[in-house]
Computed example of a mutant assay.
Amino acid sequence: MGTLNPTILAPEMSKALNAARPLRQRFNKTVLTPEILLYLFVTSPDLDANRVLQRLATERGFKLDEMARTAQTMAEMRDGRNASLDFQGDDGRPVALSDEMIVVLDEGHAIAQAAGEIYVGTAPALAAMSQRGRLHRGHAATLWHHPCGHDQPAGRCGRGPPRDQPGLGGAGQSGRAGACLSPRGPAATC
């Protein structure tokens, strides 16, 4: 069994994966799944992903407590398949990751890199979950980062999603609403 390369994780994502360990046990799961991580994102106001979700809830009119219940149900119902890759916790103990969790982290890393970041944080992981269909339909949003460097909801600065990056909400994601990737919110000018 291998170990996840810790150099791809932002400190906040490492903190989130460590915080998800007791949730995995609470939900009586053998592996850490995206659904468990989503539940953590929805219920942890100190994470960037939660700030993105709070802003989306305000903009789109859904309630985070309802999303938390949905995420909890999803986490309870879904068993993941062991990817034979562990996250090494802060205490040195391994945490088994599901195959879909590996995909979320890998795609989140790609999203972060496309946004000029080096490490995968919770907001890019949330964006990857959105693209993978892990968010409930009523809460889903394609999350992306502006090519101009400012984080904006789609249409707010007139540029819209990048067209040359279909995996980030561009041409390959037609018909889906966009929202900024950053927890900082809309930039004043763009």
Results as ranks from 00 to 15, higher is better:
71 A>N: 13
50 N>D: 10
26 R>T: 04
1 M>Q: 07
146 H>M: 14
189 T>I: 05
157 C>T: 03
33 T>S: 14
182 S>H: 04
90 D>H: 12
20 A>H: 12
126 L>C: 10
115 A>K: 02
55 R>S: 06
108 G>R: 06
24 R>K: 09
40 L>F: 06
84 S>M: 12
128 A>L: 05
94 P>G: 01
56 L>Q: 07
81 R>I: 07
1 M>C: 04
11 P>C: 08
78 R>Q: 01
8 I>P: 10
53 L>Q: 05
122 T>E: 02
137 R>F: 04
169 G>M: 11
37 L>F: 03
1 M>S: 10
67 M>H: 11
87 F>H: 11
23 L>N: 08
14 S>C: 12
124 P>Y: 01
104 V>C: 01
154 A>L: 08
76 E>W: 01
57 A>Q: 02
152 Q>S: 08
161 P>K: 07
20 A>D: 10
61 G>V: 00
12 E>T: 13
25 Q>D: 11
186 P>L: 00
107 E>K: 10
27 F>G: 01
19 A>K: 08
152 Q>R: 12
159 R>C: 04
77 M>P: 00
120 V>P: 09
182 S>R: 03
74 M>D: 03
77 M>Y: 01
159 R>M: 06
98 S>R: 12
153 P>T: 04
161 P>S: 09
88 Q>S: 12
18 N>W: 03
69 R>D: 04
65 D>T: 13
91 D>T: 02
90 D>C: 06
156 R>C: 05
19 A>P: 01
29 K>H: 13
48 D>T: 08
150 H>T: 12
171 A>K: 14
142 T>A: 12
68 A>P: 14
68 A>D: 13
100 E>A: 09
96 A>Y: 09
80 G>N: 07
156 R>V: 06
71 A>H: 13
43 T>K: 14
114 A>E: 13
8 I>W: 10
59 E>V: 11
155 G>T: 02
62 F>I: 03
7 T>H: 14
180 C>F: 00
108 G>M: 02
71 A>D: 11
69 R>V: 01
108 G>K: 07
11 P>D: 12
109 H>K: 10
103 V>T: 03
89 G>L: 05
171 A>T: 15
14 S>D: 15
145 H>E: 12
144 W>Q: 09
112 A>S: 15
117 E>R: 13
180 C>R: 10
80 G>V: 08
27 F>Q: 00
9 L>C: 10
126 L>I: 09
103 V>M: 01
168 L>H: 12
49 A>E: 11
124 P>C: 02
156 R>W: 08
146 H>Q: 15
143 L>N: 00
15 K>Q: 08
133 G>H: 07
106 D>L: 07
4 L>Q: 10
100 E>K: 09
138 G>R: 09
87 F>G: 03
179 A>H: 03
150 H>Q: 15
163 R>Q: 15
128 A>R: 05
70 T>F: 00
29 K>Q: 12
173 Q>E: 14
88 Q>G: 08
161 P>C: 10
54 Q>F: 01
166 P>W: 15
75 A>V: 01
166 P>K: 15
72 Q>V: 00
31 V>N: 04
5 N>M: 09
51 R>W: 02
41 F>T: 01
82 N>Q: 11
94 P>A: 02
149 G>W: 00
147 P>V: 06
119 Y>L: 05
60 R>Q: 06
98 S>T: 10
160 G>F: 10
22 P>I: 09
115 A>F: 00
41 F>R: 06
88 Q>N: 11
179 A>S: 07
75 A>I: 02
126 L>P: 09
